Amino acid sequence: MSLEPEINHWGTNPVDPIDAELAALESSLDNLLARDPAYWRTSQKKDRLKRLEIIQAKQAALKLRILAAAGDIAEETGAKDVSGWMLTELLVDKKIGRAEVKFAAALAKYELAAAGLAEGVVSQDKARVITKALEAVEADPTASREDLAYAEKLLVDYATRLTADDLKNIGKRILVEVDPERFEAAEAKALQREEEQAQRRTFFQSRANGDGTVDIHARVSYAVGMRLRTLLDSLAQPRKLSVEDRGRKAPL
């Protein structure tokens, strides 16, 4: 199939097939938006939401492919990357634009993940989780190219069965999934280092104010922090709880 613009022999301007397909897509969306889902059956809503999820992933894949190949836009506009043009022309915040450009470049390195997004079986959020996990694998000096390829295969497969948050948890220890014997010990050491670093960063300080109150400043682990917050909430609001128990509204 030729990618060259089709020539309209009636004497009008050449027709770009990509523009024509995008115009058809825009027209279809306009037609769909003119319909009221309130009149659809429940089964229709479920089916159409599923299909739109797939379409959304495919649309994201197309956009990311364009962004990955949009270095010429940056050159033309003198920007560091295409995010500069996105800011001025599309009013996309620079931080968001740069994140999208970075994601596009990262995804382009991973064929299976990119294909999963293009097929609609991997959402954009999951594709982002996969690329971050794979970049961490690439940065691991103990991981080989074969480990990277297998990790990508596993993550794409998991993406069809897990939420993005669950996939993120799997991604953090994907090398253990790749080769338990080699990487379990390394993971244990990494967790130990993380705990030791966390312990070094924790502290607890208190200062009496001389008016019956004490200021507290602390940094603790997340688990300890949640327990401490619950305890302090119950201790710091006895008057409020007592008043409300008597059926009156406590002053703010």
Rank of each mutant, 00 (worst) to 15 (best):
N8Q: 10
Q192I: 09
E21A: 15
N169G: 08
A74Q: 05
A218D: 00
L22A: 12
P5A: 15
G212W: 05
A159K: 01
Q197L: 15
I66H: 03
A250H: 12
Y158T: 07
Q44D: 15
V137D: 07
Y39A: 14
K153R: 15
L3Y: 04
S2Y: 03
V129F: 01
G247P: 02
G78M: 06
Y110A: 12
E21R: 02
Q192E: 15
D166V: 00
D147C: 11
A114R: 13
P14H: 06
N13A: 15
T230I: 07
D81W: 06
A139R: 12
L231V: 12
Q124H: 11
L162D: 10
L33N: 11
L232Y: 02
L87C: 08
Q59E: 12
R201C: 05
P14V: 10
D125I: 02
L134A: 09
E146Q: 14
E21G: 03
L25W: 00
K109S: 06
A70V: 09
L235M: 14
R145T: 12
R200Q: 01
Q205C: 03
A99F: 02
L231C: 09
E146D: 14
L64W: 01
V121W: 00
I174G: 06
W40N: 07
Q199N: 09
A143I: 10
V129S: 02
K153V: 07
N13W: 02
D93H: 14
V121L: 11
D81S: 11
Y110I: 13
V178M: 04
N31H: 07
K172E: 13
V156K: 04
D233P: 02
H217T: 11
E75S: 12
M86V: 09
R227E: 13
T163G: 14
Q197P: 01
L112Y: 03
K50M: 14
R145D: 15
G225T: 08
T77V: 10
